[in-house]
């Protein structure tokens, strides 16, 4: 699928270059098997994805488990080394840098994880956790770090007394605040948020979302916000990309995606969200079967076999065409994904 989203002309007035530009990114994992544990198959976790994020923008990346959204985030921070494609951050090509050459850029791209209980070292006090980024990057003396820890705690709404306590002494929401404080410690430009609120209770979730919005404003942050909950993503994002089986199937401005979804999968995702209103029984689109495995994914259009729109076997074996259907709104056009798809070709 020629995925040309990143190559799109920038909207009028947005003359500045993107902060992050991902082009034709592939992350293929060998799957070992057999007696000799040789690589037998390939798991195409991320398969030819192009995306961009402007400074100060939030890009929401939505998809179900196993679609490759976390792997994509990991590729940006080089927790995974991509198989092919480019990750350009602020004009620097990150995929070609050695680990050592990459280190200064790690300050600028930080990460917030889903489970703060697992991503914070249980044996370190909050002070040690928050001082670590400064120590690793040789920034400031002990006094400076001490001051910084208190500043960070205040920024994320925790009392200074939290510094000398340990992660297990905090609730889930407070722990996520500690994770956020660590992520913003070095004044990053981009934060990869991988399901940052999905483990939290609703009332805590809204507090953390507000905190992320406040920090974005005050620190001019960009977010790559990875989540499976479309309602949460739509709330916090400027643009949204929908990922299915390693590929982006639809992307565009958040309101446009929500109001005018084109792709059958996006429509199914939106209809599947249970509506908290007993009089609005949502007309759920029930998809057939499960997401296919990214190991030996189906040839052609990955979604064709789950779609309710009919297409012939020959058509299903043909990949869709990624095209702009409204300003900035791109969709995979295929008989099984978009109604009257020929109108857009």
């Amino acid at each position: 699928m020629p995925n040309t989203e990143a190559a799109r002309p920038l909207p009028q007035g947005a003359s500045n270059a993107p902060l992050l530009e991902i082009k034709n990114l592939k992350m293929h994992f060998p799957v070992k098997g057999g007696v000799l544990m040789r690589a037998k198959k390939v798991c195409k976790a991320v398969d030819d994805v192009s995306l961009s994020i402007q400074p100060g923008e939030t890009l929401g990346l939505v998809g179900e488990s196993g679609c490759g959204k976390s792997t994509l985030g990991n590729c940006v921070v080089r927790l995974n080394h991509p198989t092919a494609g480019s990750v350009n951050f602020n004009g620097i090509e990150l995929t070609r840098l050695s680990r050592k050459a990459l280190k200064p850029y790690r300050k600028d791209i930080q990460m917030i994880f889903q489970d703060p209980a697992e991503s914070l070292n249980a044996r370190h006090s909050v002070r040690e956790i928050l001082e670590e980024p400064f120590i690793l990057h040789h920034i400031g003396e002990a006094d400076f770090r001490r001051k910084k820890v208190h500043e960070l705690l205040e920024k994320v709404g925790l009392p200074s007394s939290a510094a000398d306590r340990f992660p297990f002494e905090f609730s889930g929401g407070q722990r996520q605040r500690i994770g956020i404080a660590r992520a913003i410690a070095l004044n990053p430009k981009l934060i990869i948020c991988d399901e940052p609120v999905s483990a939290l209770d609703v009332s805590v979730q809204s507090q953390v979302l507000n905190l992320l919005l406040d920090l974005q404003k005050s620190m001019d942050l960009s977010y790559l916000f990875i989540a499976h909950d479309l309602a949460v993503v739509k709330h916090i994002s400027d643009r949204i990309a929908i990922m299915y089986l390693g590929k982006i199937v639809e992307s565009g401005p958040a309101d446009s995606i929500y109001r005018h979804p084109y792709h059958a999968y996006t429509k199914a995702l939106i209809s599947a969200i249970p509506i908290p209103d007993p009089r609005k029984k949502s007309e759920r689109i029930i998809l057939k079967g499960d997401v296919p495995s990214p190991i030996d994914p189906p040839v052609g259009c990955a979604f064709a076999r789950r779609s309710w729109m009919p297409c012939t076997e020959a058509e299903a074996r043909q990949p869709g065409v990624f095209k702009e259907v409204r300003p900035g709104h791109w969709v995979e056009l295929h008989p099984a994904t978009v109604e009257n798809y020929k109108d857009f070709l």
């Binding site: 009332s203 805590v204 309602a231 739509k234 994002s237 929500y258």
Partner: peptide, 25 residues
């Protein structure tokens, strides 16, 4: 009321502040 108000709803305006319940359980 607090629970109902803190659910992110698709029809809410984007990037608006969400209502929260102060404090914790």
């Amino acid at each position: 009321c607090g629970l109902l108000n803190s659910i992110p709803r698709l029809e809410n305006p984007r990037k608006s502040r969400m209502q929260t319940i102060r404090g914790f359980v």
